[in-house]
Design a protein around this nucleic acid. Structure first.
Lengths: 145, 145
DNA sequence: ATCCATTACTTAAAGAGGTGAACTATTCGA
DNA sequence: TCGAATAGTTCACCTCTTTAAGTAATGGAT
């Protein structure tokens, strides 16, 4: 196995550790953390959308949002137009708290590539893109339809 | 966020999907899959070592090994020298089954870097190494002692 | 040589989180 | 306006995990 391939695997491990750290920081379980990440990344979302993204069922989302709401991490609001619909919003304070952990890490990772010249940066970007392609080619395309 | 940084994040997502695929292939839950991966990667391990690596408690390992043993994925053997100790070994057939999914993916990812010239390969490798360093610098060094 | 503390794993009871099925409220097309 | 569809929730049940207690084996101190 090429050192680069091995390092990608190590990045996966380190990333998992980082998630654990962030989860402890916000005092939430992995599912609730994943929900928070989507809400912070994408803005307010419907429970059904969270269910789709987290690969869990609607009742599990209800439970997750209950937990997050109880500790003030998110807010439930009813959609004005369609009163069946609920919108989940990450609280400002919790978003800031998560950002406080995420941003410095992202900034540092982002900074790494800047120390390479344009040609090297292009190579790195193309490499990552092709790794992504290779990875994806080994995942059966869902088939849930 | 630089495209490269964004792609690393996407690799994390795709990798998670791939894990799901492998788990379905072996018909095991995420915990049991993680155990299998360690056993395949590192060879026979003690339950206590699995507990340490998977960040779960010894009873959870007992349960996991019970499940894996029941479907023939692993074998429990008593250590000859110290009869308190147990050694868990991944079965030959299950290892081959997992390899059948893993190897083609690893091979393809490994192949990606070969299409770059020596200078670019060095840049890619150094980039990944520094990303790893950056990532690690944002993880509190355990502190469980 | 024999205790007693320690180590390694398991069993047991209880808790957290997930799913499928059924329920409630709301919207929308015939 | 009424039946079907949609969105979210409640309910019962199941799986997996943890803490606490139990069992077996080892090993150092006497």
């Amino acid at each position: 196995m090429h050192p680069a391939t091995q390092m990608i695997r190590e990045i996966l491990d380190v990333s998992a550790e980082f998630e654990g750290h962030l989860g402890r920081e916000l005092s939430v379980n992995p599912t609730d953390l994943a929900a928070m990440e989507h809400l912070i990344q994408s803005g307010p979302l419907a429970p059904s959308e969270l269910a789709r993204r987290l690969h869990i069922t609607p009742p599990a989302v209800t439970a997750s949002v209950d937990r997050l709401e109880a500790v003030g991490h998110v807010l439930r609001t009813h959609d004005a137009g369609d009163r069946r619909r609920i919108v989940i919003t990450a609280s400002q304070a919790s978003t800031a708290q998560a950002m406080g952990v995420l941003m410095p890490m992202i900034r540092d990772v982002d900074r790494v590539i800047e120390s390479f010249d344009a040609d090297q940066q292009a190579a790195i970007t193309r490499y990552l893109d092709q790794v992504l392609v290779a990875y994806r080619s080994h995942i059966p395309s869902d088939g849930s339809a």
